[in-house]
Amino acid sequence: MSSVQALTPREDTGFTRRRFYLAAIYGFWGLIGAALGAPALIYLLLPPKPRKGVEWIEAGDLRSLAAGPPKELVFRRNRVDGWKVISEKSSAWVVKTGENEIVAFGPQCTHLGCAYHWDDLKKGFLCPCHASVFSPDGRVVSGPAPRPLDRFDVRLENGKLLLGALREQMEPTE
């Protein structure tokens, strides 16, 4: 039967109708794909709306900090973790640089996030993972770390040390 149909003049209109069908099929599926795909990407990729500004946390007493080797302070802080605010243990390496001057470093190596420690012999912060070494002012001395140690915003109030947001140090500090 197809050979009979193929010879009829209908073929021409059939061809344009076929093109219309194809265009509509691709068009409809394209629209559906976009209407589902775009919100999905936005939903997965955009960060959640912020709920709270950064809180200042009391990390320790100023008097207990002496000049000398850096000291690790452990404190509790609240952190927004998805749908919860959790209270968790956190720490900072604190260096007293002057009578009323304190520098507080985030406790993770800037290379791959391992916890580093103060090495008294080397007089520097030593990362156990890939042997990055940081000087007491946070600069990279050796190893693969790409940037100086991150620093907390610091405030001194009534003899207490308050820590704010943790910030990346893009340029080596002088």
Binding site: I42, Y43, L46, P48, W83
Partner: peptide
């Protein structure tokens, strides 16, 4: 313990979460 709050998080804090749940 978490279902309700995580759904609220989807609805009120994630962009597009309300649409996905509506669908």
């Amino acid at each position: 313990g978490d279902a309700y709050n995580s759904l609220r998080y989807i609805l009120t804090e994630l962009t597009g979460g309300r649409l996905i749940r509506g669908l």
